[in-house]
Nucleic acid binder design. Sequence first.
DNA 1: AAAGATTGATCAATCAATCTTC
DNA 2: GAAGATTGATTGATCAATCTTT
Lengths: 167, 167
Amino acid sequence: MNNVRWLPSIPVTRWLSDEEQRLWRLWITVTADLQHRIQQDLEASGLTEADYEILAHLSEAPGDSLRMTDLARQTLFQKSRLTYRVAHLETLGLVSRQPCEGDARGVLAVLTKAGRRTIEKAAPSHVETVRDALIDHLRPGTRRALIADFEAMLETRSQKVHGAHHH
Amino acid sequence: MNNVRWLPSIPVTRWLSDEEQRLWRLWITVTADLQHRIQQDLEASGLTEADYEILAHLSEAPGDSLRMTDLARQTLFQKSRLTYRVAHLETLGLVSRQPCEGDARGVLAVLTKAGRRTIEKAAPSHVETVRDALIDHLRPGTRRALIADFEAMLETRSQKVHGAHHH
DNA sequence: AAAGATTGATCAATCAATCTTC
DNA sequence: GAAGATTGATTGATCAATCTTT
């Protein structure tokens, strides 16, 4: 697998070129600004970014519900974080917890009617924020190039992970 | 300034197209993964992402030092967050606080020798992580396109902010 | 024992005061 | 009073147990 292992192993740091440096700084700025504006926008609905993500995933799930583990996978949250956030959403009346049919260990997080109203009310301005802070500023060519590079990147990654399993 | 203000103001939500949606999901995934791997990598040096940023900015500043306010501006941190993080770095012996010449209100954060050793030790693998989780996966054309779009975006933004000042 | 989920303790981030110096 | 910086209180995130069911 490691086809250069017989070459002298000199740990040379490949520092960023001026252009790469510039891109990295811009990336940091744009990302920070994007996140900040998303948070600002969601304040009007009394939601955090994490809360919005949870509600969004539930609203797209069949039966407006998901098991905690599946929801954790989709949102990329840790289990404990999800537990705390869902508990919070429950106090707001936006989500309810229900026992899981056929598996007494499981817990189903279900979007309530108030939860659906909330996410549907918050969504338009959230999308507008994402557009205004990112998407609308990327030209069609940039979008296509990014999608291609990102997908190739994730493809490489999943192959690496898969490859690591049978060493 | 608002050249469409005489048009009927129908608040139509411009939902994301399939391609835009795909890009946005990829962006979220890539960004989350990038951040996660940066954190993982810095653990070896006992630093958080925030700590690294602070040390990095200090190491590039003249005299290895910056006033708290300036450091906050550069890192995009809030003042109180910076106070807590610098206090922590001080307990680690990586930064020291010194009174500010000529302005008794100011506090100078100064990189110590241990601080410089730490950042110089952490930097190579940090850069490698940034490359491996992002930069190296963007083709030259994608990089140029991104830089152009990002810069145009920030330019637009600063004009808007500037314009808002003399309403 | 492994999977699903929660809890307690700890650390980090945020917001609204507060304090000092300009 | 405004700028520079810190503090206290609160909320959020994380990690290592813990508990139950499979």
